[in-house]
Simulated assay, not measured.
Amino acid sequence: MEKPVTILAIKKLLTTITDPADERLAQIMNDSRKGVVKAYHTWENQLKKQQLILEKQQEMLQIEHYFWEKGTQYIAGIDEVGRGPLAGPVVAAAVILPIDFAVLGINDSKQLSSTKRELLFDQIKESAIAIGIGIKNHQVVDEVNIYQATKLAMIEAVQQLPQQPEQLLIDAMHLPTSIPQESFIKGDAKSLSIAAASIIAKVTRDRMMADYDEVYPGYGFSENAGYGTKVHLEGLEKHGVCPIHRKTFAPVKKMLQ
């Protein structure tokens, strides 16, 4: 291979190399131009970062592999979002991933930017075997309490799966179902299926709250998703309680008294 003449050409070439044993790298490493040295170090750092992502992916698939290796094919990870907000629904998602699932960068949804969550949301929907979503609105939360509403949302998410799961992996909850289940504290950091469910639930709920922001402006729902931020609390003081507020949650309850 002829040595690329320009630094730009070398940068373009590096974008096509993914194997550190690629023989073309030897010529690039011997090029002493500052721009080439910098480009190589950038490529090397990106490769290391990619390797860490791959290692994290395999680490978060250990639970799934345990069941896959036992012959359990359809494993549903389940998570929820929206237990703490003062307004809006609690949303749960159940996600069944295939054994060859290859979407990288999945993590606990709280650890990701909104842009990254949106991207992964689409990729998960495209690659998953099945996705189910359960939604319990503010009225249900007030009627049965947030813990029970969360359970109901999770059960609904499982029921909405187009593929019957053989095993459930749940983030810190036990569900009244005959399907075998395992519960994990901080499961969205331990299981890729649960982490994928957390992203589906989070994006689904955020989009709902953005829509509610147009219907009930003044509380910042599109930015705070109903959590008790300064803007939200100021909106409560100025506009009072709106129809999607949880009336059993302080400070909403205090305002109504």
Rank of each mutant, 00 (worst) to 15 (best):
V37F: 07
Q50A: 15
V37M: 13
I131C: 05
S32G: 06
G228Q: 02
K49R: 10
K238E: 15
I170S: 11
I28V: 14
E118D: 13
I133L: 07
M208P: 01
V5T: 14
K56L: 12
D100V: 10
Q46A: 10
H41R: 14
L112R: 01
K190D: 04
W68E: 07
A87G: 12
E214W: 01
P89I: 06
Y219L: 04
H65N: 15
K125V: 08
I244E: 04
T42E: 11
A21S: 11
I185M: 01
L13C: 10
L86P: 03
A250R: 10
T204F: 04
E234T: 12
M255F: 09
P251R: 05
K70D: 09
F221K: 00
L175I: 11
K116C: 08
A94E: 04
Y147L: 15
L86F: 02
D211C: 05
G218N: 09
A195Y: 04
F101N: 03
A149V: 07
I200A: 04
T72C: 08
C242Y: 06
K230A: 15
I185F: 00
D213I: 09
S178G: 00
I244K: 01
P85L: 11
K253G: 01
H232F: 14
P180Q: 12
P162Q: 13
A26E: 09
A153W: 03
A149E: 08
Y147V: 15
D213V: 08
L112E: 07
L47P: 02
V203L: 05
A39N: 09
P4N: 07
I99A: 14
Q159K: 14
A201S: 13
Q167L: 13
G235V: 06
D213G: 12
L104A: 09
E2K: 12
A130C: 13
W43T: 03
T150C: 07
I200R: 02
L112S: 10
D206W: 10
D213R: 00
A76C: 09
L104G: 06
L54I: 14
I75G: 02
A76K: 02
V140S: 09
H41M: 14
V81G: 08
I185P: 00
I185L: 04
F184K: 00
P180R: 07
P176C: 13
A21T: 13
V215W: 04
Q181P: 03
F249Q: 03
T204N: 04
E2P: 14
P251C: 12
E223K: 13
Q167W: 01
A172P: 04
K202G: 05
I17Q: 05
A189P: 05
I106Q: 03
N107D: 15
S32M: 10
K116R: 14
F121M: 03
N224S: 04
V95Y: 00
Q167V: 01
K186Y: 13
Q167K: 11
N137P: 11
I96R: 01
Q160V: 11
I99T: 10
L104K: 12
D188A: 06
